[in-house]
C-alpha cells in the first residue's frame, strides 16, 4: 500500500497532464520531471547542487548536535541551569529560524557562516528540548536502582541517566536534522546563490517547472533518506528498545 498509493497518483497526474486536463505548464508530467532528474545528474549540475546543500546540512547538524545534547543533559540534571535557560529556549523555539537569517547576516555578512548557523539553530533547539525531555521523563526508580546499587556521580550519569535518555536524544537528532534541512532550503531560496533551495527559486523565476519539481523531489528524497538513515543507526545502537516508532 505504501508504494501503491503514490504510484497511482503519479499515473493519474501523468495522464491528466498529457491530456491537458491540468495545465502541463504548471503540472508537467512526472516522466518529464524524471528525465530532467536523469539529465541533471548526468550533466553533474544536480549532483553538485545537492552536494552543496548536503554539505551545509552536515555542518549545521554537527554544529547543533553536540552543544544541543550537552545543554539538554545539563538542563535535565541541574535544576538551576534549567531554571535559568528554559525561558529563553521556550521563547526562541517556536520562532521559525529563517527569521534569524537577517540578524545573522548583519553580524556575519551574507555567506556560508550565516547560512549554516541558521540551519544549526533550527536543529539546536529541537535537540535541546528532546534531550531535556528524555532526562526529565526517565523512570525515577531507575535513579534509585543506580544509587542503591552503588552507581554515584559520573557512574550514575554514564550507566543510568545517559542510556535512559538516549532514545529521546535520537528522536531529537532526527527531528533536528529534518528542521535544519527545512531552514537551509529556505535560506538557499532567499539568500544563497547555490544549493537545491536556490534551484527551486531560480527555476520558479524562469517558470521552468520540470526543473523546479526535480529540485523539490531531491529535497524530499534527501530528508527521507537522512531520517531513515538515522533511524537505522538508532535501531543498531539501541537494540534493547522494544520498538522504534515509525517516521
Amino acid at each position: 500500500m505504501s508504494l501503491a498509493v503514490p504510484a497511482v497518483l503519479l499515473v493519474l497526474w501523468e495522464i491528466c497532464s498529457r491530456h491537458a486536463i491540468v495545465s502541463p505548464r504548471y503540472f508537467p508530467p512526472p516522466t518529464t520531471v524524471g528525465w530532467v532528474l536523469v539529465d541533471g545528474f548526468a550533466a553533474g549540475d544536480l549532483g553538485t547542487q545537492s552536494l552543496v546543500t548536503l554539505t551545509r546540512l552536515g555542518f549545521a547538524f554537527a554544529t547543533a548536535a553536540v552543544p544541543g545534547v550537552l545543554l539538554g543533559l545539563l538542563m535535565g540534571m541541574a535544576r538551576p541551569v534549567r531554571d535559568a535557560v528554559e525561558p529563553y529556549i521556550a521563547f526562541i523555539f517556536p520562532v521559525p529560524k529563517i527569521t534569524l537569517l537577517p540578524f545573522l547576516t548583519i553580524i556575519l555578512g551574507v555567506g556560508e557562516p550565516a547560512f549554516v548557523l541558521t540551519g544549526a539553530t533550527s536543529a539546536f533547539f529541537q535537540i535541546v528540548i528532546s534531550t531535556l525531555g528524555g532526562v526529565q521523563t526517565m523512570d525515577p526508580r531507575l535513579l534509585e536502582v543506580g544509587r542503591n546499587y552503588g552507581a554515584r556521580g559520573a557512574r550514575l550519569f554514564w550507566k543510568v541517566i545517559l542510556p535512559a535518555a538516549l532514545p529521546a536524544i535520537f528522536t531529537g537528532l532526527r527531528l533536528g536534522l529534518g528542521l535544519a534541512l527545512v531552514a537551509l532550503v529556505a535560506v538557499e531560496f532567499i539568500a544563497a546563490k547555490s544549493g537545491l533551495g536556490h534551484l527551486v527559486y531560480r527555476h520558479w523565476q524562469m517558470l521552468s517547472t520540470p526543473e523546479m519539481y526535480a529540485a523539490f523531489a531531491i529535497v524530499g528524497a534527501l530528508g527521507l533518506l537522512l531520517t531513515r538513515g538515522l533511524r537505522a543507526v538508532q535501531a543498531r545502537v539501541l537494540t534493547w528498545q522494544e520498538e522504534i516508532g515509525r517516521l
Binding site: 523512570d139 526508580r141 531507575l142 534509585e144 536502582v145 542503591n148 543510568v160 542510556p163 535512559a164 538516549l166 539501541l238 534493547w240 528498545q241
Partner: peptide
C-alpha cells in the same frame, strides 16, 4: 533492594 515492578535497566 528489590523494587516494585522490577525496575530493571532496559538497555
Amino acid at each position: 533492594m528489590v523494587f516494585q515492578e522490577h525496575a530493571l535497566l532496559p538497555w
